[in-house]
């Protein structure tokens, strides 16, 4: 039998103020079921306060064949890194 249960990408917000981060994926028949599966698989040890699920087939990925064209030109442009200021100790998550 063909497995037709869709895959969903799961994003977890660890705490308020932070952004949702990709943590993995789950199988579920519908969006509601995907949220519940994500809750059970990825937040059972208090990892998060909010969840997003997105159908995997809704994600458009960059083509690995274009990697050189897309990413290589950034390699020698170190002047794009803002290194001229000091991040205060109290500012986290940058």
């Amino acid at each position: 039998m063909k497995n037709i249960t869709p895959i969903w990408e799961v994003f977890v917000r660890a705490k308020n103020g932070l952004s949702h981060r990709h943590v993995g994926s789950v199988h579920a028949a519908d969006a509601r079921g995907a949220v519940e599966a994500a809750r059970d698989v990825y937040t059972r040890r208090m990892e998060g306060v909010s969840l997003w699920v997105v159908p995997s087939n809704a994600i458009t990925a960059s083509d690995p064949g274009e990697a050189a064209a897309l990413f290589a030109p950034a390699e020698d442009k170190i002047y794009r890194h803002p290194t001229f200021y000091v991040v205060p100790d109290n500012v986290k998550h940058i």
């Binding site: 199988h27 519940e36 059970d40 698989v41």
Partner: peptide
């Protein structure tokens, strides 16, 4: 499925 397995154990 793994998802349901964890849910039932939870």
């Amino acid at each position: 499925t793994l998802e349901v397995d964890l849910a039932l154990s939870n």
